[in-house]
């Protein structure tokens, strides 16, 4: 019977060791696929082809299945994010409080659509399905930091601060 050997790390990058660590902790079991992809995304910012291939081979999961999981869940992204990310919540409470105006303001200011990154790779505009801070609606996350009761002007002011940097 052929003995299974683990694939080599894709590159010298130390972050691959973190990914490998998550898989080793789970005994390279197939059910660790989502956990491993979470580690890839938190280390590298997105899931690229190399990463999906590496994880799939390490866990002996068909590549199609790994790709299927990576594209099924909204939290995973295959495109690298910009230097900064602004996430505007479009949950029900935020929608009722006018989050569509915030989204429109950000789109106008950045000249991109939701889910895209500016051409210079500086800012990504993302939409969240509810971040669970509904009592402070409408909310936005700037590089993960939450601010509540936002207005379109405040969104634009934040984007300007980033542009000046």
């Amino acid at each position: 019977m052929p003995v299974f050997t683990l694939p080599p790390l894709p590159s010298e990058d130390n972050r691959w060791k973190i990914v490998n660590g998550t898989m080793r902790k789970n005994g390279y079991a197939r059910h660790a696929l989502i956990e491993a992809l979470h580690t890839v995304q938190s280390s590298f910012g997105c899931l690229d082809d190399d990463a999906i291939r590496f994880v799939a081979q390490s866990l002996r999961v068909p590549l199609s299945q790994a790709y299927g999981v990576a594209t099924f869940y909204h939290y995973f992204t295959l495109k690298p994010p910009g230097k900064h990310t602004i996430t505007i919540c479009a949950g029900t409470a935020c929608y009722i409080k006018g989050s569509d105006k915030l989204i429109a303001a950000a789109e106008r200011k950045l000249g991109i659509k939701q889910g895209q990154t500016t051409a210079d790779g500086e800012i990504s505009l993302m939409i969240a399905r509810c971040v669970g801070a509904c009592s402070r609606a409408p909310v936005m996350l700037c590089d993960g930091e939450l601010s509540g009761q936002m207005s379109a002007e405040q969104v634009q002011a934040q984007l300007e601060r980033w542009a000046v940097e």
Binding site: H31, H74, F76, R129
Partner: peptide, 25 residues
């Protein structure tokens, strides 16, 4: 602890189980 990955349907119990097993929910 198992982390979800942003799929509303995973609140359904059989989909949630599939997700814990590392599959599409």
């Amino acid at each position: 602890i198992r982390l979800g990955a942003g799929a509303f349907v995973c609140g359904e119990e059989t989909a949630l189980i599939a997700s814990i097993e590392g599959r599409r929910g």
